[in-house]
Amino acid sequence: MKKRGIGIGCGFYGTGYGNGFPDVSRARAKLETDGKIGIYVGATEVGQGAKTVLQQIAAEAMGVSIEDIKFYCESTENTPDAGTAAASRQTYNTGNAIKKACEALKEGLIYIAIDKLLLNSAVGIRVENKKVYLESYPQSAISFEDIAKALTEPLCFEESFTAGTTKMEEESGQGAPYWPYTFSVYGVEVEVDTQTGFVEVLKAVCAQDVGRAINPQLLEGQIDGGFSMALGYALMEDLRLTNGEIRNNRFSSYIIPTALDMPEVKKIIVEDPEVTGPYGAKGVGEPVMVAAAPAILNAIYNAVGVRMREIPVTPDRLLEALMEKE
C-alpha cells in the first residue's frame, strides 16, 4: 500500500570557523591603469558562485557595473589569503573584506580628486559611474581613468575582516561560538510504499533566511543542491564505514539522488539583513541542507507512524521498522 505524509523540519546554523578561531579574509582593491577596479582575493570558486557574488559586492561598493571589475582570485601568487571555501563563509567574511577594501580605495580616490580638482574638503564628494565629482557642482569631476593616468604609483588598499566569535568556556559550554546564524525551514510530502519500504519525496518547500539575497538565482541553486544532498543523506547515502574502511566506495553501492529522485523545490528566500554582513548578506552553502532530512523523517512518521532514528532510511531498514510496529 502507498501512504502519504507531510513533515516539517527547522534548523539554525552558525556559519564561519567559529569558537574564537581567527576567521580571517583579506582582499585588495586597486585602481587599474585603465580606470577599472581590480579586486585581488584568494577566495576559491568551486561552483557555489563566490566569484559572481564577490564581484557584485565590489561593484556595489564602488558604484560601478560588474563589467568594470577585474577580478583575480585563487592564485596565491598575486592574491591575499581569504581563507577556505568552507563553513559557508565566503559571502559573509570575504564579502566584508572586499567591501572594506573598496571603501578604502574610494576614500583614496576622493583624496586624489580633492587635490586634482582643487577642492577644500571631502564633504559632498560622490564616487559613482567611474568618476569622482562634487555633488553640488557636478562639472567639477574627474574620471577613474584620468586619476589612473595621473598616478605615479599604484593606488591599492588591502583590508581584512575577522568574524567575531568567542571560544566556548570549557566548564560551562557558554559563549558566542558562531556569528552569524542562519535559519531555515523545510516542508516535504512523501509517499511510502509499505510493501517495498521505498520512500519517494513528492514535493518540497524551503524557506531560507539569507540576510540579503545578493544573487537570488545562485541562492536557488544552493537550495536545490542542498536539498538533493539531504535527500541522499536521509534515504540513500551510506558509507558503510567498517573498521575505518569505506565499504560503499563506488557509485554502484554509494547511491546518490538522480534527477528522477529529486522533487521540485519551492523556494522562499527570507531577507532579514544581518547588520554585520556585507549589505546584510549571510552564507547559505551548508545551512540549506540542515533541516531537510528531519523534515523527510517527520513525513515518514506522518505517513506510516514509525519514528526512524537512524539514517539513511533505506527500504530494508524501513521495512524492518514497519514489521516491528505490527
Binding site: 561552483g47 536557488e220 541553486g221 537550495i223 536545490d224 543542491g225 542542498g226 536539498f227 538533493s228 544532498m229 557509485f251 546518490i256 539522488p257 538522480t258 534527477a259 528522477l260 529529486m262 521540485e264 523545490v265
Partner: peptide, 22 residues
C-alpha cells in the same frame, strides 16, 4: 519535465539538485 528528468537520469550531479538543469 518528467521526460527531461528521465533523459538525464543517467547523469549524476552532486551540486545542482537537477532542478535548474531541468
Amino acid at each position: 519535465r518528467d521526460e527531461i528528468r528521465e533523459g538525464i537520469s543517467g547523469n549524476l550531479c552532486r551540486c545542482t539538485g537537477y532542478n535548474k538543469i531541468v
